[in-house]
Amino acid sequence: MSDSHGHSHPHGQPHPFQPDIEDSALTHHQLLQLAVGELLMEKGIFTGDEFRRTLEDIDSRNPGDGARVVARAWVDAEFKKRLLADTAAAAAELGVDAGTIPIMTVENTPQIHNAIVCTLCSCYPRLLLGLPPDWYKSRAYRSRVVREPRAVLAEFGTTIPEDTEVRVHDSTAELRYMVLPMRPEGTEGMSEDELAKLVTRDCMVGVTLPDNPSN
């Protein structure tokens, strides 16, 4: 699920890579970032080594971690129970460090479809899914998904049956949310690794559903 710059593109949609800043003049805010970073290191508030390790940690987080957790929950009912009770502890069983901000896994069922938003800022389960996509932080998504969730899901190509409850979680405070999608039909013979490949970032936010491999 990873490409050359370590970022997962589960939908196969390449997006433009921003050139590094050495090629052009620095913007005011890029200057501010570099100056603040250097001053904090000069003052010993953090070391260059701590800074580098933090950057490596940010780069190492991607939706593949969340996908492994979901795939395990699909094949192991007892693991799923533990995941729903304590997401960080269950993720740790797979060697995934989900961090200290509590994450709540919400399960899709034939009766309930969950979707995640943060209308006030951009809270997101970063340690399980990596940095959020641009649309998650956009005015359009944040404004509309709490008021017309079915219309927003339709823009992602997702139609939820009329008799299913669409449940939108607005992460306003201390919890972060991850959606546990339903295992698609026709995947009975698949291995856990194969299943994990069906689990995209967007279906763990609840705006899409995992692909049915027979489609």
């Binding site: 710059h5 433009p16 641009d134 649309w135 998504y141 509309r144």
Partner: peptide
């Protein structure tokens, strides 16, 4: 509408 374009 939600613009689904992304940047790295």
């Amino acid at each position: 509408p939600v613009d689904r374009a992304e940047h790295d």
